[in-house]
């Protein structure tokens, strides 16, 4: 699966990374006090001095760890993931570990591949004929990127919420009950009602819609529609919920509600969220990965990434130099 050359390159890179990582960790004081970066900022990244950009991660592990997270419980492990659209390589040998019951945010400038990566995790890219994906995505002891993996089974366990709310043109009740019924999770009307109520409560929508469950989902406001889509996803009790810029089409109030929701849902689900909004990542995420040109430049504890990024590129992006 992996090209021998790239394997060799990876080993070499990994060696370098280890060194760099230890250096970058050393440079950060234990008390968390912010110290001005030693050398970045002074020189432009890479091109200027030919000095390699310091890697912000190693073997998919974050640069620094978040103490609130149980790092033993891995949800998904991505190893050496490449993706091509025809001849164009959109993702370049990504490695990342995603821990259970965390919110992991993916940030980066437009076109950096963060949404593309997200859609690899439940194989939505299979719908694009020109896309070719290589690499390993491990979940529950299986390579879910393998050809023999049943994508329907995968998507049953890895749900997704999209950028624009897309409720089905059915009733609110049907929107939530439809997929569990298909998967035979519930069958009797009473079970369905219980499940719908629970999912809508979890999504914080129950009080607003409990009297109009038989109205079309499309009659709700944008923010409510998006929460309906979240309810639809969690009704299946998946392991992972992928969110692709879930608030970018919403007003600030709805955005705040959904951000609260993400933090609350972390208790039961693993959430991976792509966002354009760095404040959002800072507010909701335990870990944040910074993408640039199809690569993960830095994967780090969210607080650390925003306060003392390990790489110049991440720092430039966060301080608003580009993106």
């Amino acid at each position: 699966m992996t090209h021998p050359d790239s394997a060799a390159r990876d080993t070499a890179a990994a060696d370098g990374q280890t060194e760099q990582r230890s250096r970058s960790r050393e440079s950060r004081p234990a008390n968390g006090e912010v110290q001005p970066a030693v050398d970045h900022g002074a020189s432009e990244p890479q091109s200027a001095g030919g000095r390699p950009e310091r890697q912000g991660q190693s073997g998919g592990k974050p640069v620094s760890f978040n103490n609130e997270v149980d790092h033993e419980r891995l949800s998904m492990t991505v190893t050496d993931l490449d993706l091509w659209y025809g001849d164009y390589q959109a993702l370049k040998s990504l490695d990342i570990e995603i821990y259970s019951n965390t919110v992991t945010a993916l940030i980066g400038p437009s076109g950096c591949g963060k949404s593309t990566f997200l859609r690899c995790l439940n194989r939505m890219n299979d719908l694009i004929p020109s896309a070719r994906i290589e690499g390993r995505i491990e979940m529950d002891g299986r390579n879910v990127n393998a050809r023999e993996m049943d994508v329907v089974a995968l998507r049953r366990r890895v749900g997704m919420v999209f950028q624009n709310p897309n409720p089905f043109p059915k009733t609110i009740f049907e929107n939530v009950a439809y997929a569990p019924r298909m998967h035979d999770i519930v069958s009797s009307r009473r079970d369905q009602e219980e499940l719908v109520e629970q999912a809508l409560r979890d999504a914080g929508l129950w009080d607003e819609v409990k009297d109009k469950l038989d109205q079309p989902g499309t009659s709700l406001s944008g923010g409510q529609q998006q929460r309906l889509c979240i309810a639809r996803a969690i009704a299946l009790r998946p392991d992972v919920i992928l969110m692709d810029e879930p608030t970018s089409a919403l007003d600030p109030i709805s955005t705040a509600i959904i951000e609260d929701l993400m933090v609350r849902l972390r208790k039961d689900f693993t959430i991976v969220v792509v966002t354009h909004n760095m404040q959002q990542a800072a507010r909701v995420a335990d870990y944040t990965a910074f993408f640039h040109l199809g690569e993960i430049i830095e994967y780090n504890d969210t607080a650390t990434l925003f306060e003392t990024p390990a790489t110049t590129k991440a720092e430039d992006y966060i301080t608003g130099r580009y993106g």
Partner: peptide, 11 residues
């Protein structure tokens, strides 16, 4: 988006 919404639910 409706097709994707459905497929993403493992339908």
């Amino acid at each position: 988006s409706l097709r994707q919404g459905a497929l993403a639910l493992g339908v």
